[in-house]
Simulated scan of single mutants.
Amino acid sequence: MKTILTNKHISIETSKRALQCYIEPVLMYGCEAWTISKQIQNKLEATEMWFLRRMLRIPWTAKKTNERVLNEANKRRSLVRTIRNRQATFLSHVMRKGKLEHLVTTGKFEGKRSRGRQREKIMDGLATWLGTGKVMDTLAAVKDRGLWRNRIANVYKQGT
């Protein structure tokens, strides 16, 4: 795809559509089950900016800020938001279904926890993204589709 994305005879809009149609789905494969930490979020944003810089043919030695590159491409960062939206949609589907996936996602199964610092759970990441702060509030909101859609829409309005 490098030849298509960096071709001078293809417009930036066409290159952005090719990126969105062919590369982003491969990049986001299985993202519904990811636990996104701050480090992973930074890497995803850096990847998105790397693609834009390649499309605009901006060398890595050029001292252009990411905001300038985004303005030049007439684009906003959307990769992390898309992943979070897909995670929220998948979570609502799993929680309403109420099968084994529900038990695994909420962490309500028998057994011992391993020693050391516990890993961040998907529910914790979504609760902080939605601004609820508590997992139980998030689970309660999932049951009500209207409330869940409003929460996701409010997060999108805030631009996170």
Rank of each mutant, 00 (worst) to 15 (best):
N42D: 11
D137A: 09
R68M: 11
S15Y: 03
K63S: 09
S11T: 15
I83K: 03
T132S: 01
G131A: 07
E24A: 15
R145T: 10
K63R: 13
S11N: 13
G30C: 10
N71Q: 06
K112A: 14
M28T: 11
I58L: 14
G111W: 03
R86H: 04
L79H: 04
K64Q: 08
M136T: 10
N74V: 12
T35F: 04
R119M: 09
E45Y: 10
N154Y: 12
L147M: 15
R149K: 15
Y29M: 01
L126M: 09
D124S: 11
K75F: 01
I23Q: 07
K75Q: 06
L56R: 02
C31I: 05
T105V: 11
T3M: 07
L44E: 00
A18K: 07
T106D: 04
A73P: 05
A73I: 07
Y156R: 13
R81A: 00
S114G: 00
K38N: 11
L139M: 14
R151M: 14
N7T: 03
H9M: 08
I58D: 03
K43Y: 03
R77K: 12
G146C: 01
T89C: 09
E45L: 09
D137E: 11
R145W: 01
L130F: 05
T14H: 14
A33L: 08
R84K: 06
L19E: 02
K75D: 06
V142N: 02
Q118T: 13
E13S: 10
R54G: 08
V135A: 03
L70V: 00
I10Y: 06
Q41N: 01
T89A: 13
D144S: 09
L139E: 06
E24H: 14
S92Y: 09
L91D: 05
H102I: 04
L52W: 08
P25L: 10
E72T: 13
K75H: 04
L103W: 05
R81D: 03
G98M: 04
L103T: 11
T132H: 00
I40H: 04
V80M: 02
A127F: 05
L100Q: 08
R77Q: 10
D144Y: 06
S114W: 00
T138G: 04
R81C: 05
R145H: 08
N154L: 15
R77H: 04
N150A: 10
W50Y: 03
G116A: 02
